[in-house]
């Protein structure tokens, strides 16, 4: 959001902000609502983990955590009302995190098979080690 836009928040405090206040004033009801939503999502996370669906457990847990994290970032951290530049700093960091985890996982999975063979006293081709 542009600088001018941020200024307009000065008189956008849901009617309760004092004149000349810097930034967006979050209503008390929103803060309580966000907290309760996060608690409900925590309960769902715990409940979902009790059901064993193999690999989908990780996917589900990460999906709910991502929703929770986004709620924290958008409301508690004011990213919804903040300058867009701040949003992109965070978004960029998360993107690089995914990139790093993704590529390293890809790489390690590719060579893990060779390493297992090596550990079992074989050559990397899977043939018995010549003695």
């Amino acid at each position: 959001m542009s600088d001018g836009h941020a200024h307009s928040h000065d008189d956008h405090g849901h009617g309760e902000a004092l004149p000349g206040t810097i930034g967006h004033v979050t209503p008390a009801s929103t803060l309580i609502g966000v907290f309760l939503t996060l608690v409900v999502l925590t309960v769902i996370t715990v409940a979902a983990a009790q059901v064993d669906v193999g690999r989908l457990n990780v996917v589900g847990a990460l999906a709910i955590a991502t929703v929770k994290g986004s709620i924290v970032a958008l409301w508690f951290m004011h990213l919804r009302y903040d300058k867009r530049f701040n949003f992109f700093i965070m978004f960029g960091s998360v993107l690089f995190l995914l990139w790093m985890v993704g590529y390293i996982l890809f790489d390690t999975k590719m060579y893990q098979h060779d390493m297992e063979n090596y550990r079992h006293n074989k050559t990397v081709d899977g043939k018995p080690k010549p003695e």
């Binding site: 965070m90 960091s93 690089f96 995190l97 390690t108």
Partner: peptide, 28 residues
């Protein structure tokens, strides 16, 4: 605030290394 967000972006990258370690060990 911009300074704080830059720091927080760095914090995410800081923890990214540990999340990568987690992912690699868990994956294998």
């Amino acid at each position: 605030k911009l300074g704080m967000w830059l720091f927080l972006g760095q914090e995410v990258l800081f923890f990214a290394a540990l999340f990568t370690a987690y992912a690699v060990y868990r994956g294998n």
